[in-house]
């Protein structure tokens, strides 16, 4: 009953090609090939299935028409960039929550915290672990077992010579994320080479 995959052969190679194209676009100074999270929607709107080299990814590279696999790889890179922005947004929200919680706990009078509801989890009267709703405030993670961040963000650590990446631009970040997700060691090393080349790091 399962469908056969339609885009398996060459996907990985296409990703590499697209990454190179994107990197060249970035080097050319246009930055359009990579796009950013905020540009993603607008950029994708400018490209309704165009295959004749007028897509932003191609314009930056100044090469010939992209193959469909390359188009997919570039779109995938944009999807990844959007995912990065999404993760940043969620992390910022969580940081806001933490500071609000801290502020709230600082404001809580000592008498209230002493005589109020118990804070956090405890053994319930029926042998189960009960966490009183909201006791102590902001302990919503009781309902969120083992989910802190998407699992596919970084599976393979960066080599020792790779710096922290705090100053990565969008292209570098995509290369870094692609490399850290790549299960094939040979392809992963190629992606790190691309990263080094792009960042001007001497191997």
């Amino acid at each position: 009953m399962r469908d056969n995959p339609t885009l398996d052969p060459g996907t990985l190679a296409a990703l590499e090609a697209a990454m190179e194209a994107a990197a060249q676009g970035g080097n050319a100074g246009t930055g359009e090939g990579a796009g950013t999270g905020s540009e993603t929607g607008a950029a994708s709107g400018q490209w309704p299935g165009d295959t004749q080299g007028s897509s932003p990814g191609n314009a930056g590279a100044g090469t010939g028409p992209l193959t469909p696999a390359e188009q997919v790889a570039i779109l995938d890179a944009r999807l990844e960039a959007g995912a990065g922005d999404f993760d940043t947004m969620i992390l910022e929200e969580q940081a806001r929550q933490r500071s609000a919680r801290r502020a709230s706990s600082d404001d809580t009078p000592a008498s209230e915290s002493a005589g109020g509801a118990p804070a956090g989890g405890r053994e319930g009267p029926y042998g189960e672990d009960i966490t009183v709703a909201g006791a102590g405030g902001g302990r919503g993670s009781v309902n969120t077992p083992g989910r802190s961040a998407p699992a596919n963000t970084a599976r393979y650590p960066a080599p020792d010579d790779i710096p922290s990446g705090n100053d990565d631009d969008v292209v570098a970040r995509q290369l870094r994320e692609a490399a850290m997700r790549e299960p094939d060691p040979a392809v992963r090393e190629k992606l790190w080479d691309e990263y080094r080349k792009y960042k001007g790091l001497t191997p």
């Binding site: 995912a83 969580q94 929550q97 709703a133």
Partner: peptide, 25 residues
């Protein structure tokens, strides 16, 4: 991959509901 992010979003909302419940309790 998107669904994992969606679940992360819902988990983040739980913090809001939890904080609200704590304030309201």
């Amino acid at each position: 991959s998107i669904r994992e992010r969606d679940q992360l979003f819902v988990d983040t909302l739980q913090e809001h509901y939890g904080y609200f419940s704590g304030e309201m309790q």
